[in-house]
């Protein structure tokens, strides 16, 4: 039995990639792990006082997002795991792929004009991730 690592942010656009990951796990009989990365680099641009422990808040939000993904998987008969990491997406994705000994990493295609990444950026991330980790990466 292999392992599928699916990086997700949990928004409406991520549901398609979550569904694809669930379907693939069913088809291959693989273990499925959803991954959420807490990245707070956007706070570098603010001038107002930052006294809130933002990372912890976002980690809780991430766990909630993953719980929703797990609930979707459970509804389709798949018991999925959840993993939250703090740091930059690319580095944490690489580290998570190594730590979980994943056989396949799934990334979602950008959906709509308001997507966080464009297609080229996702493909570039997938290529560099596959090269550095030696793990198969698929954009779904």
């Amino acid at each position: 039995m292999g392992k599928i690592l699916c990086a997700t942010r949990g928004g409406a656009a991520s549901r398609a990639s979550q569904d694809a990951a669930i379907a693939l796990a069913q088809e291959r009989g693989d273990e499925l792990i959803f991954l959420y990365v807490v990245d707070i680099s956007f706070l570098n641009q603010t001038a107002a006082p930052l006294v809130v422990d933002v990372e912890s808040r976002l980690e809780k939000m991430g766990r909630f997002q993953l719980a929703m993904a797990q609930e979707r998987a459970a509804a389709q008969g798949i018991s999925a795991g959840a993993l939250v990491r703090r740091g930059q997406l690319r580095a944490e994705l690489l580290a998570a792929a190594r730590e979980t000994e994943a056989d396949l990493v799934l990334l979602g295609h950008p959906v709509g004009t308001e997507a966080v990444f464009d297609e080229a950026a996702i493909q570039s991330l997938a290529t560099s991730l596959a090269r550095e980790s030696g793990v198969k990466v698929r954009v779904v």
């Binding site: 928004g11 991520s14 956007f42 976002l58």
Partner: peptide
């Protein structure tokens, strides 16, 4: 406003980006 920027930053981390135009 800085509050807009942090809200958009967190929303983006939840897969719900707020674009300039929006």
């Amino acid at each position: 406003a800085s509050a807009n920027m942090v809200t958009a930053g967190i929303a983006e981390r939840a897969g719900q980006p707020i674009t300039y135009l929006y």
